[in-house]
């Protein structure tokens, strides 16, 4: 099937999509956007998190066809004009990235949290990131990064 959808502000049209494939597969394998990661394909790890019409979802659990005519934003769409988003800068500076596999999903989830809750409590951060697993950092640096990004955002 043919699928037309807006990804990171640009209209993408792809052919020969298998109707049972996921939005994640389509992004990575057909649209040249490998930022979103595939780690579990069952909604458990959050490394495939993207925005679908402004809401963070596991793209491995969205059928490609369900994204027809929708707006998708991936980790590749967070930076603007070559300038990293404050959440991305904070992750780098706080050491919240080790192997980096979980990072794209965590960035989208953290980006969404800070857009809704500019000054989140630790509990709110933990709850917002509960669907994102990291096997390297032990999460403390990730919490640091989100707190730091919130401060940056407040100062900006």
């Amino acid at each position: 099937m043919r699928i037309t959808t807006t990804v990171n502000g640009a209209v993408h049209e792809v052919d020969d999509v298998w109707p049972g494939e996921s939005l994640l597969y389509m992004l990575r394998e057909r649209m040249g956007l490998p930022g979103s990661k595939n780690a579990c394909e069952q909604g458990e790890c959050g490394s495939c998190t993207v925005y679908l019409d402004g809401e963070p979802v596991c793209s491995c659990l969205v059928a490609a066809g369900q994204a027809i005519g929708r707006e998708v934003t991936t980790v590749e769409g967070l930076a603007t004009e070559g300038q990293l988003h404050p959440v991305q800068e904070a992750f780098l500076e706080c050491g919240a990235v080790q192997c980096g596999f979980c990072t794209p999903g965590l960035l989208v989830a953290a980006h969404d949290l800070l857009a809704r809750v500019p000054d989140p409590s630790d509990l709110e951060i933990r709850e917002a990131l509960a669907g994102n697993l990291c096997r390297c950092t032990g999460y403390e640096k990730i919490l640091d990064a989100v707190r730091s990004a919130a401060r940056r955002q407040a100062e900006a």
């Binding site: 049972g20 996921s22 394909e41 069952q42 909604g43 596991c58 491995c60 969205v62 059928a63």
Partner: peptide, 18 residues
């Protein structure tokens, strides 16, 4: 899709249509 897609991703279901 949170139940159905897991089944599709893991080849547990191959329906004629979604």
């Amino acid at each position: 899709g949170t139940d159905v897609m897991v089944d599709l991703n893991f080849d547990r279901r191959r329906p004629g249509a979604l």
